[in-house]
């Protein structure tokens, strides 16, 4: 393998892993970061998204429509779960863990009863390119870039819109936010639906690359959890940085020692990282920005007093 193709190989593994971690973790990260609720049914939401997408596409719809059906369908489902169950547990994060675990069991077993042990999958779109001795899936490279695009859309949503401002205010202090006239329950509900839509989107996007079985959610669950834990409370910067760091190790180790070591390395890095920085990347970033701001302010007031 020459240098060029091994660099490409590493880049491919990195982008593939980055896309997977980011896309599968975002829904979980937003629900956790904004609401403090750990959605153990996240993997099953992804599974549901994959099923809806696959079935819609198999019924003859174009893939892009199937994709929309998958994400919005899971959003709708999440909205119903929120109104029926999660809404009663907004202030009880531990109970919400148990409840969402129950939801996940019902969903995976329900899907098994409903659709059987597996359904025929879709073929991966976009074909492949050949570099050196390997073929690479164009679709997976595309997903890596799509992950960045989704992050940008979410960044704009949270930083530039009124919904974003209100949800960030609610995240920081729900009591103050509602005393200022924000309907915090509605913010939570909408945030939960947004998280569900993103989970559905993850399932929809990865549906053509995986076998569609009722237990497929667990593939996503573990890695998205690790990403969120390393990322910390801020769903945007946290997920981005943690996805980047973990993919760097995952990609590098996968290239040299194979997939298993890549996966193991990712977990070891995550454990070490959390040992050193228990609040994850966002805790680190938050402290740094406040420190820089404070220094800037001190500089200003020193300037004034002189």
């Amino acid at each position: 393998m020459d240098l060029y193709s091994s660099i490409f190989n590493f880049m491919y593994l990195f982008i593939d892993s980055f896309g997977f971690l980011i896309i599968s973790a975002l829904g979980l990260a937003i629900i956790f970061g904004m609401m403090g609720i750990i959605n153990l049914a996240h993997g099953e939401y992804i599974m549901l998204g994959a099923y809806i997408t696959t079935l819609t596409a198999a019924a003859g719809m174009p893939f892009i429509i199937a994709l929309l059906c998958g994400s919005l369908g899971v959003g709708l489902f999440g909205g119903i779960v929120d109104r029926l169950i999660i809404r009663h547990l907004y202030k009880r994060p531990l109970d919400s863990v148990v409840a969402s675990w129950g939801v996940s069991l019902i969903m995976s077993q329900g899907m098994l009863v409903l659709m059987g042990p597996s359904i025929p999958g879709l073929s991966t779109p976009m074909g492949s390119i050949n570099v050196g001795q390997f073929d690479y899936s164009v679709y997976r490279i595309f997903l890596g870039f799509l992950a960045i695009f989704i992050m940008i859309v979410l960044y704009v949503l949270f930083k530039k819109t009124k919904f974003g401002l209100h949800s960030r205010a609610t995240m920081q202090n729900a009591v103050i936010a509602r005393n200022l006239g924000i309907n915090s329950d509605r913010m939570y509900c909408m945030t939960y639906i947004l998280g569900s839509v993103l989970a559905g989107l993850a399932g929809a996007l990865y549906a053509p690359t995986l076998s569609i079985v009722p237990t497929m959610g667990s593939n996503f669950m573990m890695l998205s959890f690790v990403t969120v834990v390393v990322g910390g409370a801020d769903p945007m910067t946290g997920t981005l940085l943690s996805g980047g760091l973990l993919s760097l190790f995952n990609g590098g180790l996968s290239m040299i020692f194979g997939t298993l070591m890549g996966r193991l390395g990712l977990l070891v890095v995550a454990i070490l990282f959390i040992r050193v920085l228990p609040e994850g990347f966002s805790g680190l970033v938050e402290r740094q920005t406040l420190r820089v701001n404070r220094k800037k302010q001190e500089a200003i007031s020193n300037g004034e007093s002189n």
């Binding site: 401002l165 202090n173 009591v175 200022l180 915090s184």
Partner: peptide, 29 residues
Amino acid sequence: YERAQLGMGYIPQGHGVFPLLTVEENLLV
């Protein structure tokens, strides 16, 4: 939140600003 929307402005003990929002964002809330 409904009382607030009727025009009741509550300023809590300890001021209750949102620490990670900018001054302007705090105002916009």
